[in-house]
């Protein structure tokens, strides 16, 4: 058992690329679901259209990087309107159904053979991150404390990522303290009551959907840039469900809960995964467990841990127990 390796990979996971991407996706979901009560089950599609918008602009059409970012952003906003206009006047479940279907449609279009000249089929797109890394202020080398360090490319991606997280958290904090946030939280509780008080509920729901999508799309850009590649299957439905898990783990409708939730989620996954694989190679586990199946066992154990957490702390890490008690009344 190499505890040193387990420790280093676990600590790195707490601030790594996955944590950053999932934190941004979860901040978006927290705005939509945690504050406004919108069930957007298609967050993966918002990240997907942003990542592909940028990647395709640069890699397929050889246009500038910043134009790619703009196109990704525009695609996200268009997607939000496309999903929101027909469903936000209806009951909450309709948005859930439409978004989950739309996310799959988006993914299947990206990987389709017909459009492979544009989106690159199941291989996706590469060679679009040059301009981003050309802006890298870090000179080649490793940055960090002792063994917990990253090379200059990863450090640059993580720097941008954590700055974006800080900015969006500040934005969410300001918004949710304001009367705007109050309307959003009221809509989550009962939208008819909000309507009877003279607020345009549809408009606020749309604003929340767009804002949550745009925050998520930042995660999409980073996902693509951090891996220097986009593939359609990165944006499958389980991506969205992990992001939901993260929000609930941290405690819905709290500013920092998606960030801490994302870090904890990935720490758990990496720690359990690495410990298991070390234990298997050291022959500490019964022969039932092999290198091939511990990946699945890892998810089972993490799932079990999350279930226990929700049973014994249903409000999440930052949640307020009194709020959960209100639901039981």
């Amino acid at each position: 058992m190499d505890w040193n390796t387990i420790f280093v990979t676990t600590v790195k996971a707490s601030i790594g690329l996955e944590t950053v991407v999932y934190a941004l996706a979860a901040i978006g979901i927290n705005i939509q679901f945690g504050y406004a009560g919108l069930l957007n089950f298609g967050q993966a599609a918002f990240l997907g259209v942003a990542a592909y918008g940028m990647a395709v602009t640069v890699a397929t059409f050889h246009l500038p990087f910043w134009l790619g970012i703009l196109i990704g952003l525009a695609a996200t906003i268009v997607l939000a309107f496309l999903l929101g206009i027909p469903t936000l006047r209806l009951r909450a479940d309709y948005l859930a159904i439409v978004t989950i279907a739309a996310a799959e449609i988006v993914r299947l279009v990206f990987r389709s053979v017909k459009f492979s000249s544009v989106f690159g089929g199941s291989d996706g797109r590469q060679n679009f991150s040059g301009d981003f890394f050309a802006m890298n202020p870090y000179s080649p080398g490793t940055y960090g404390i002792g063994p917990i360090s990253f090379n200059e490319r990863v450090t640059w991606v993580l720097t941008v990522g954590w700055v974006l997280i800080a900015i969006t958290c500040g934005l969410v904090y300001l918004l949710m303290k304001s009367p705007w946030g109050r309307v959003l939280k009221a809509i989550r509780e009962d939208e008819d009551a909000v309507r009877s008080l003279g607020k345009n509920v549809f408009s606020y729901k749309m604003q929340a959907l767009v804002l949550g999508g745009v925050v998520g799309c930042l995660g999409g850009f980073l996902f693509a840039l951090g891996q220097a590649s986009v593939q359609p299957d990165l944006f499958s439905t389980e991506f969205t469900f992990y992001a939901y898990t993260i929000v609930i783990l941290g405690g819905a409708a709290r500013v920092f809960s998606p960030v801490v939730g994302a870090a904890l989620f990935w720490v758990l996954l990496v720690f359990v995964g690495n410990t298991l694989s070390e234990a298997v190679s050291a022959g500490l586990l019964p022969s039932l467990f092999t290198v091939n199946n511990i990946g699945a066992v890892r998810f089972m154990l993490v799932g079990l841990g999350l279930m226990l957490l929700l049973i014994f702390r249903p409000q999440g890490i930052f949640g307020d127990k009194r709020e959960i008690a209100l639901d039981a009344r």
Binding site: P179, R182, V183, K185, A186, R188, E189, D190, A193, V194, L197, K199, E323, L326, D327, R329
Partner: peptide
């Protein structure tokens, strides 16, 4: 609006 305080309900 259950999870808003009485005052927040009023301000709304």
């Amino acid at each position: 609006l259950s999870k808003l305080t009485v005052m927040e309900n009023m301000r709304l």
